Measured scan of single mutants.
Amino acid sequence: MEVRTIKVFTTVDNINLHTQVVDMSMTYGQQFGPTYLDGADVTKIKPHNSHEGKTFYVLPNDDTLRVEAFEYYHTTDPSFLGRYMSALNHTKKWKYPQVNGLTSIKWADNNCYLATALLTLQQIELKFNPPALQDAYYRARAGEAANFCALILAYCNKTVGELGDVRETMSYLFQHANLDSCKRVLNVVCKTCGQQQTTLKGVEAVMYMGTLSYEQFKKGVQIPCTCGKQATKYLVQQESPFVMMSAPPAQYELKHGTFTCASEYTGNYQCGHYKHITSKETLYCIDGALLTKSSEYKGPITDVFYKENSYTTTIK
Score class of each variant (00 low, 15 high):
R167T: 14
T292N: 09
K275L: 01
E253H: 12
K95W: 09
T76F: 09
E68I: 08
M24A: 10
K307H: 14
M245Q: 05
C156M: 14
N309Y: 05
K307W: 09
T103C: 07
N129I: 08
Q98A: 11
C225E: 01
F217A: 08
A117I: 15
A69F: 14
E281G: 08
R66G: 09
F80V: 04
T199W: 15
K307F: 06
L235C: 09
T27M: 09
L179M: 06
G29T: 01
F9N: 11
Q31G: 05
P300A: 15
C271G: 13
P131L: 01
E52F: 10
M170F: 09
C193R: 03
L212M: 07
G257I: 03
A247E: 04
K218Y: 05
Y252K: 05
V3Q: 14
H276R: 04
S295P: 13
T27F: 08
D38T: 08
T169K: 00
G267L: 11
Y72T: 09
M209C: 11
G82P: 12
G272N: 05
L119Y: 03
F56L: 12
C112T: 09
T27Q: 12
D109I: 00
P78E: 10
L126N: 00
L186Y: 12
G39M: 05
C112K: 05
G257M: 06
W94I: 01
T312L: 12
G210A: 05
V67L: 11
L133P: 01
T103Q: 05
Y36I: 00
I277K: 06
V160S: 03
L290W: 11
D77Y: 02
E2V: 08
N14H: 07
I105Q: 01
D63F: 09
S294Y: 09
M244R: 06
E144R: 07
K54S: 12
Y72I: 04
M170L: 11
Y234W: 11
K280S: 12
R184Q: 08
T312R: 12
D23N: 15
Y138L: 14
E125M: 09
Y72N: 14
P241R: 06
S213H: 06
V12L: 10
Y265Q: 14
E168M: 04
Q31M: 09
E71G: 11
Y297W: 09
Y208G: 07
D303T: 10
N147H: 11
I105H: 07
E68C: 07
G164H: 07
N157D: 13
A145F: 02
D287T: 04
C112W: 06
K255A: 08
Y214N: 05
L254A: 08
I124Q: 00
N187R: 12
F259L: 05
K233S: 12
V42M: 13
K229C: 11
L65M: 11
A231W: 02
V12N: 08
M244K: 02
T313C: 10
L65E: 08
I277M: 06
G164Q: 04
I277T: 04
G267V: 15
K93G: 11
E52W: 09
N61F: 06
K106L: 14
P47M: 00
G161M: 02
V8M: 10
S263D: 15
T282G: 11
F128T: 02
L290P: 06
N89A: 09
Y297N: 07
A145C: 07
V206C: 09
V67H: 15
M85S: 05
V8N: 01
C271L: 15
Q230D: 11
M85E: 05
T313K: 09
T312E: 11
D23T: 10
L173W: 02
L65P: 07
Q251E: 13
T64K: 13
P249Q: 06
M1L: 11
T199Y: 09
T159H: 14
V236R: 08
E308G: 08
G228C: 03
T314H: 11
K54M: 07
V206H: 03
M24L: 11
P60H: 05
M244E: 06
F174M: 07
A250V: 08
A231I: 04
L133C: 01
V22H: 01
T64V: 14
S25T: 12
A262N: 00
Y252V: 08
P249C: 11
F217Q: 05
Q270K: 09
E68D: 09
G33Y: 01
A250N: 13
D180C: 09
N49A: 15
M170Y: 03
F128G: 03
Y214G: 03
K54F: 12
Y172Q: 15
G220W: 05
F148S: 00
E68H: 09
S240K: 04
W107L: 15
Q238R: 02
M244L: 05
V206T: 05
T116G: 08
A115Y: 04
Q196M: 11
V21R: 13
E253P: 09
V221M: 09
V221L: 08
S294K: 11
M26F: 03
A154R: 02
T91V: 07
V203D: 01
C285Y: 08
H90W: 11
A117K: 00
T91I: 04
A250L: 13
L151N: 02
A145H: 00
D38L: 11
G161K: 02
V42W: 14
E296R: 14
N147W: 05
H90K: 10
A289L: 04
V236A: 08
K316P: 08
T10L: 11
T10N: 08
N100D: 09
G164L: 04
F70K: 12
H90C: 14
A69V: 11
S213I: 07
N129V: 10
E168H: 08
V21Y: 11
Y284D: 07
M209T: 12
T76M: 11
V67A: 11
G299Y: 03
H176W: 13
N100S: 15
Y113T: 02
Q195H: 12
A115M: 15
A247Y: 02
E204I: 05
T76G: 10
R66E: 11
Y269P: 07
Q237K: 09
P34V: 07
E168G: 14
G82E: 09
K7A: 06
E253F: 07
G220F: 03
F70A: 13
K54Y: 12
R4P: 12
K201F: 15
V3G: 13
V304N: 02
Q134T: 08
R83S: 05
P131G: 03
E52L: 10
A136F: 04
N111L: 01
E308P: 05
T192E: 15
S294D: 08
E168T: 14
Y72G: 08
K219D: 11
L153S: 01
F80E: 01
Q238V: 02
N110W: 05
M209R: 14
Y306G: 06
A262K: 03
